[in-house]
Amino acid sequence: MTIITSGLFWFILGILFCIALVGFKIWMEDRGVKMVWWKWGLTVIWIAFAGFAIAFAGVSIGENEMTAAGMGGLIFGIAVIVSGFIFWRLLHLGKA
C-alpha cells in the first residue's frame, strides 16, 4: 500500500478539501461571484496542478535531485501562477 492508496490519506484530504471548498464558495459569494459547475471544474484543475507542482519539487528534493527540484519548481510554479491568474479572471466572468 502506498500513501495515495491509503484510505486514511484520502479521508484526511477529503475533510480538508471539503472545508477549503466550502470556505472558498462562501468567500466567492461575498465577492459577488456565483460558483457554477464549470467554475468548480477550473478550481479543481488548478488545485490539482498546484498540488502537483509542490509535490514535484518535494519529491525531487527528497531524491536529492536538486536540478529537477529547481527547474521543476520554477517551471511548474510559474505555470501555476499564470494559470491561477487566468482562472481567477475566468471565475469572475458574470460577476453580479
Partner: peptide, 10 residues
C-alpha cells in the same frame, strides 16, 4: 469508506 479501506489494507 476511507477508514474501512485503510484499516483492511494496513
Amino acid at each position: 469508506l476511507g477508514i474501512g479501506l485503510w484499516s483492511v489494507e494496513s
